[in-house]
């Protein structure tokens, strides 16, 4: 299989980017409601280990086991997010502290590692895996075949999810209410929108998606669990939400772009191209993240980008 370099790059980029799409979309929805959740890395790890554990321990047809594993991963992420929702919405603690605490609690050497130890799923080969499907039998089409018609089901699911999120945010009344809760919870409250309910729902939904993002590692990318598997992707997902100006379509693009940066170094090396040291390419995705964050924090960008105005601010009707 000797592929054109650009096609090979895009195929790898989509695989690398899909967990970022799922987790990033979850964070985007939570932030649109005004809740910043820095616990994404922890929720992804919980999703990764929970999904993998279900896929290892449950018997039955592979398709059903994998579906149950996804549900387990989403549930694990959602439960973690519920903790954050309770702390930041009901008790109104600092969202940054609460989110960070979640990542530390669930992260490497935390709860996710503990779950892996208790169920003894570390270091073993997964029994089930989402593999690429030959969609409509078109995988051998030139160029678009390997990119569009030969992906695993979770890639298609994540793309559909992005389309649904676009429609939901910008074409439905609930989406409009959600955005108003994130912009001005007081005004939304005055209109009779239940701010607390909106924030709870989208924070928990965000956690479920982060759980799915983590499960993409253990159920599709490489069916294998070990401590700290997601290796910082949760943080990248948070940065991508800013990069995407809180828009799902741009998030999809950003995630694939980031995936392409990760794939660029190895792809050039594999073809014997040594223009720059490999360390340079290893650093590029993170340099890009810093550049984007700096650019996004300028005054001009803040006015234009559509940061939810109430992001990170707890809401209380008494004006607290």
């Amino acid at each position: 299989m000797n592929r054109n370099i650009v096609i090979a790059l895009i195929v790898t980029a989509i695989g690398n980017g899909t967990p970022l799409v799922l987790a990033g979309l979850g964070e985007l929805l939570a932030e649109r409601s005004g809740v910043l959740n820095l616990g994404v890395e922890g929720m992804m790890l919980m999703g990764a280990v929970s999904g993998f554990t279900v896929s290892q321990k449950l018997g039955g047809p592979a398709a059903l086991v994998l579906l149950a594993a996804l549900l387990g991963a989403a549930a694990a992420g959602a439960v973690m997010a519920l903790i954050h929702a309770f702390l930041s919405i009901t008790v109104r603690v600092n969202q940054i502290v609460s989110g960070l605490a979640l990542t530390i609690f669930a992260g490497t050497a935390g709860l996710s590692s503990y779950v892996g130890q208790v169920w003894k799923v570390g270091g073993i080969h997964g029994l089930h895996q989402y593999k690429a499907v030959d969609l409509f039998g078109l995988k051998n089409l030139p160029i678009v075949g390997p990119i569009v018609f030969h992906e695993d089901p979770l890639v298609y699911f994540s793309v559909i999810l992005v389309a649904v999120a676009m429609w939901y945010l910008f074409r439905t009344r609930t989406g409009l209410y959600l955005r108003s809760v994130g912009e001005s919870p007081a005004a939304a409250d005055a209109m009779g929108i239940n701010v607390t309910r909106y924030r709870y729902a989208h924070t928990v939904l965000g956690g479920a998606l982060a759980g799915l993002g983590g499960a993409y590692f253990t159920l599709a990318l490489a069916p294998f669990w070990t401590d700290g598997l997601t290796a910082g992707d949760g943080w990248i997902a948070i940065a991508l939400v800013i990069f995407a100006f809180w828009r799902p379509d741009l998030l999809l693009l950003g995630a694939y772009l980031f995936g392409a940066f990760v794939a660029l170094g190895p792809t050039l090396q594999a073809r014997g191209i040594h223009a720059l040291p490999s360390e340079f390419f290893s650093a590029v995705p993170y340099v890009m993240t810093v550049v984007v964050l700096v650019a996004a924090s300028t005054g001009w960008a803040k006015r234009r980008l559509g940061t939810p105005a109430a992001l990170g601010v707890p809401y209380s009707r008494e004006g607290g």
Partner: peptide, 18 residues
């Protein structure tokens, strides 16, 4: 040790025709 990077490297080699 980083399964994501190891995977990207192995995929890139497979794509290059080894």
């Amino acid at each position: 040790f980083d399964p994501t990077k190891e995977r990207a490297a192995a995929e890139s080699l497979a794509g290059a025709g080894v």
